[in-house]
Amino acid sequence: MRTSNDLRNSKIPLVHGTGAIPAVGFGSLIPDRAAAKQAIKNALEVGFRHIDGAELYRTEDAVGEAIREALEAGTVTREELFVATKLWNNNHRPERVKAAFEASLRRLQLDYLDSYLIHTPFAFKPGDELFPANERGELIYDSGVTLIETWREMERLVDEGRVRSIGLSDITLETLKEIVEVARIKPAVVQVECHPYLPEWELLEFCQQHGIVFVAFAPLGHTMEPRVTDDPVIKAIAQRVGKTPTQVALAWAAQRGTAFLTTSTNPAHIRENFDISPLPQDAMEEMRHRITTSIRLNPVVDTGVPGFVPRSK
């Protein structure tokens, strides 16, 4: 399925879309816009070609500026880039999808997107509030729209040629199966929390069977406890192969057939996250069978509220 054995530059073809997605990706969930812009510029200079954003992150404008400056400097060409962003929960109503998409395009300063994802399968009350709440502070969900109806509008964006692939994020296998069953244009990409403590083997197998690219976010566990990079199995492998635990965990992600997203504002960490190499097969087997910790760190699949995103706005 991959187009290169070099993990850093490998790509996964989009069966249900156009082109291929670089396995090694960089996320833009960085609250400070100036820091986000600089981090993305650093990532592009290091070699990242897959940039992931979201309406919710409020950094699409910073992503757009970083990409524009990189294009003007000749660091990359638009054809080399794979840029994705996401529709937020308050825009699930069919009449709001296209406007939200076009607003993201304007902020990103792009003519088209390589991928557009439904951020979560949960619809919130439509309007300007990112997290609409009642007088008790409880989220107001929108029972007036179904995920299928939102998906139909996503399909129309593909028909219009403004986006080359569509997909879903923060979704369970059961809900994904429901969409795959009825979709005219099948999901090209599914993005979920995934790391050695949450390998999602069943979901990965389903995606591979149906030509869906699996993208792992928080591939290092978002530095939360228990820390993936402190795992004794991973640390022992890292010492054996001459890489850091971070690089071992990321290589594992790419080598098992997924794409992944890392985020950092530290230039040294950005370089480290890109500089991955294939692991020996016995190391892959060890990570599958000897790592015993199992934990989900982000409750978003149950609530539609991303656990890693500040709710300040």
Rank of each mutant, 00 (worst) to 15 (best):
E102Y: 11
N89S: 15
E155H: 09
E95M: 05
E60F: 10
N42R: 06
P94V: 00
I67N: 09
E79T: 13
A54N: 02
L87H: 05
R136T: 04
W151D: 00
N91L: 09
T75Q: 08
P121F: 13
N42A: 13
A62H: 11
T120W: 02
L110R: 12
F122W: 15
K125N: 02
D111T: 03
W151C: 03
R78A: 08
L117T: 01
H50Q: 10
L147I: 14
W88K: 06
E102F: 12
S104N: 10
D142K: 10
R49K: 15
S115P: 01
R156S: 11
E149G: 04
R136S: 13
V63F: 09
E69Q: 15
T150E: 04
P126F: 14
A73F: 11
R136W: 06
F122V: 07
I140S: 07
F48Q: 05
Q109C: 05
V63L: 12
T59M: 02
E153I: 00
A54I: 06
V83M: 13
A70K: 13
Y141H: 10
E102G: 00
H119P: 14
G64K: 13
R58G: 00
E153Q: 15
E153G: 03
P121Q: 07
H92T: 05
N90F: 10
T75P: 08
I51P: 11
A123D: 10
L56I: 15
G127T: 01
G64I: 05
K86W: 07
G137R: 09
E135Q: 13
D114I: 06
L139D: 02
K98W: 08
L113R: 08
A100Y: 14
L117S: 00
P121D: 01
F124W: 12
L147S: 03
E65Y: 08
G47I: 07
P121V: 04
A84L: 11
L108S: 02
G47A: 09
P94E: 03
E153M: 11
G64N: 06
F48R: 09
T59L: 03
G64P: 10
V63E: 04
F131K: 01
A103D: 14
K86H: 05
I67C: 03
G127S: 07
S115T: 10
N90E: 11
W88V: 07
P132N: 08
D61G: 03
G64Y: 13
V97T: 02
R93M: 12
L44A: 02
G64F: 08
G74C: 10
V97K: 06
R106M: 00
A73P: 05
R78H: 08
A123S: 15
K125F: 09
P126W: 12
D61T: 14
L110N: 05
